[in-house]
Amino acid sequence: MAASVPIAGNRFAIIGGASLVGSATAGELLDHGAAEVVLFDNFAFGSDAAIAHLKDHPRLRLVRGDVMRMADLLRATEGLAGVLQLAAYMTLSMDRDPWSGLDVNIRGVQNVLEACRANGVRKLVFASSNATYGYGPGVAGELVEDTPFHSAGAPPAAILYGASKIIGEQLCRDAYRKWGQDYVVLRYSTVYGERQHYRAANALYIIETIDRLRRGEAPQVFGDGSETKHFVYVGDLARANRMAFESGATDVAVNTSGPAPTTTLELVQLVTELLGGGKAPEFIGAEPGKVRLTSGGAFRIAHEAAKAAIGWAPEVDMREGLRRLIAWRDGNEGRNSNEERGA
Rank of each mutant, 00 (worst) to 15 (best):
R242N: 06
I15M: 06
V38T: 09
E282A: 04
L113P: 05
Q269W: 03
Y135D: 14
G331Q: 06
L325C: 00
A249H: 11
L270P: 02
A154Q: 09
S129D: 12
N241M: 14
A218V: 08
L143Y: 01
H32T: 04
K165H: 06
S23H: 13
Q269E: 14
M70V: 06
G101Y: 02
L86V: 09
L213R: 04
T190A: 10
K307I: 04
A44R: 11
R117T: 00
V5H: 05
K307Q: 14
S189V: 03
D224N: 14
Y183T: 08
G216S: 06
R242I: 06
W99C: 07
P261I: 13
V221Q: 02
M318L: 15
R75I: 03
A24V: 03
I159Q: 10
D103W: 12
N241L: 13
V63A: 10
S93R: 06
G9P: 07
A35W: 13
R187A: 02
E287H: 11
P155G: 07
D31S: 15
W99H: 10
L124T: 13
I207Q: 10
L265G: 01
A24H: 13
N111E: 10
I15R: 00
E217W: 05
R324D: 12
G342K: 01
E28D: 08
R199N: 10
V109E: 07
F126E: 04
G16L: 02
G138L: 05
G27D: 03
A240D: 08
G216A: 05
E194C: 00
G22L: 06
L160C: 10
A286M: 15
V104D: 00
E194N: 00
G285W: 08
Y135C: 07
K307C: 07
S19N: 07
S189M: 03
S257M: 06
G193C: 11
R300K: 15
E194S: 00
I207N: 02
L186P: 06
I207E: 02
A49E: 14
V121W: 05
